[in-house]
């Protein structure tokens, strides 16, 4: 009888264990180490500005100086085969998204909208298919994720989630705007000829771009 009772108890505990395992299976079980690791990497503690500061002069600017495509050449390739041009020179974070490019060009500043916080400097670039207007978002408010998306060494998968990935975009835009505004005087920009390096989706009549460098054109008057 004692044995039977023990058997019953054993059966019970097995049943109870099975039951609790099943019940626990429904809960979120995270062991402490994982939780700590996850928290250390959580969005709150990720410092996107520090990350961007670290890569700005060592990677971002050199990438533009070496990889940016001449706008005129790029436009001709895009006109021929947009996807081929995108695959060879552009970057995108998902299928079906527009290709984002690092571009460079030279042209005359034909408009400056410095009153808005979303300030725009319009540069007219001569291309094989005629003059093209490039709206350079000089900020401080810069819209879009073109800059982040044009940099092939910044991958969505390297970050914990979209929030960090978005913070990086914002920090890059802020850093780009700061650099451009510090080195370039908006007040008497009108009519000058400049060279620019920028990130952009190349479509439509006017191309909106996020500049990382605006400087006096080589040989052009400033």
């Amino acid at each position: 009888m004692a044995l039977t009772r023990r058997h019953i108890l054993a059966l019970f505990s097995v049943a109870a264990l099975g039951g609790s395992a099943a019940a626990l299976g429904g809960c979120k079980i995270v062991d402490n180490a994982d939780l700590k690791a996850a928290k250390a990497k959580s969005s709150d503690e990720f410092d996107a500005n520090a990350y961007v500061d670290k890569i700005w002069t060592s990677k971002v600017l050199p990438d533009f100086r070496s990889r940016a495509m001449d706008l005129d050449t790029l436009l001709q390739e895009v006109a021929k085969d947009p996807d081929k041009a995108g695959q060879s020179h552009g970057h995108r974070a998902g299928d079906g998204n527009p290709w984002t490019f690092e571009i460079k060009g030279e042209g005359k500043i034909t408009a400056v909208d410095a009153a808005s916080r979303h300030a725009i400097v319009t540069v007219e670039v001569q291309t094989a298919s005629g003059a093209r207007k490039i709206d350079l978002q000089v900020g401080p408010v810069v819209f879009g994720t073109a800059l982040r998306d044009a940099l092939s060494f910044i991958q969505f998968g390297d970050f914990v989630n979209q929030i960090q990935y978005a913070q990086v975009s914002r920090a890059l835009n802020d850093r780009a705007s700061k650099g451009v505004r510090e080195s370039f005087d908006l007040k008497d920009a009108m009519g000058k000829t400049v060279a620019f390096y920028a990130a952009a989706v190349v479509s439509g009549d006017t191309i909106t771009a996020t500049p990382v460098i605006i400087e006096p054109a080589k040989g052009g008057k400033t």
């Binding site: 974070a93 998902g94 299928d95 079906g96 998204n97 527009p98 991958q155 969505f156 998968g157 979209q162 990935y165």
Partner: peptide
């Protein structure tokens, strides 16, 4: 043939 994380506009 794609990265794990993909983002569609």
């Amino acid at each position: 043939g794609k990265p794990e994380k993909q983002s569609i506009d």
